[in-house]
């Protein structure tokens, strides 16, 4: 009986958690938040789904396998070190540009943001991958 309640609840909860996670991630550079926190919140949504329904459903909702997120995240973080190498001759130095968008105004973009995004994606992959493995092998559902 409670299963069905959970199964009804997971979808809106997941949406909320995704939005909250994005919010925390994006404002992370200036206010509390950032890649780690955002990723942990995001994974909570999917772990909740995996526990409520099953891991396969959660994996499907993630579009690609969680392990891929780990790889992509690591790669992004490593790639973000390259511009500093090229422009300042020291890998991992932050390089910033400002772009002007019609609606949002001036937006500062820099390699640290890409790095943080890498952390976000990687940690998301790590946490979901770990949890799914546990759930699957212990035959939660």
């Amino acid at each position: 009986m409670d299963k069905t309640v959970l199964q009804l609840a997971y979808k809106p909860l997941r949406v909320i958690l995704i939005i909250v996670s994005m919010y925390y991630f994006l404002r992370g550079h200036n206010s509390p938040g950032g890649g780690f926190i955002g990723a942990l919140i995001l994974s909570a949504g999917f772990i909740f789904q995996a526990m409520a329904v099953n891991t396969n459903s959660a994996r499907r909702s993630m579009l690609i396998e969680p392990e891929w997120y780990i790889h992509i995240g690591l790669l992004m973080s490593i790639v973000s070190s390259i511009p500093g190498w090229i422009y300042v001759n020291t890998p991992m130095t932050g390089v910033w540009t400002t772009i002007n968008l019609p609606l949002a105004g001036d937006i500062k973009l820099g390699t640290p943001l890409l790095f943080d995004l890498g952390v976000y994606v990687c940690v998301f992959g790590v946490v979901t991958s770990m949890s799914f493995q546990f759930l699957k092998h212990i035959k939660w559902n």
Partner: peptide, 26 residues
């Protein structure tokens, strides 16, 4: 370029440490 100093340390000043950390997690 950030007001959250903790986050700036993580992703900019000490980003190599963070890279190492996410590698450990992976």
């Amino acid at each position: 370029k950030g007001q959250n100093i903790v986050n700036v340390i993580l992703v900019d000043f000490r980003s190599l440490d963070t890279l190492g950390e996410i590698t450990v997690l992976a």
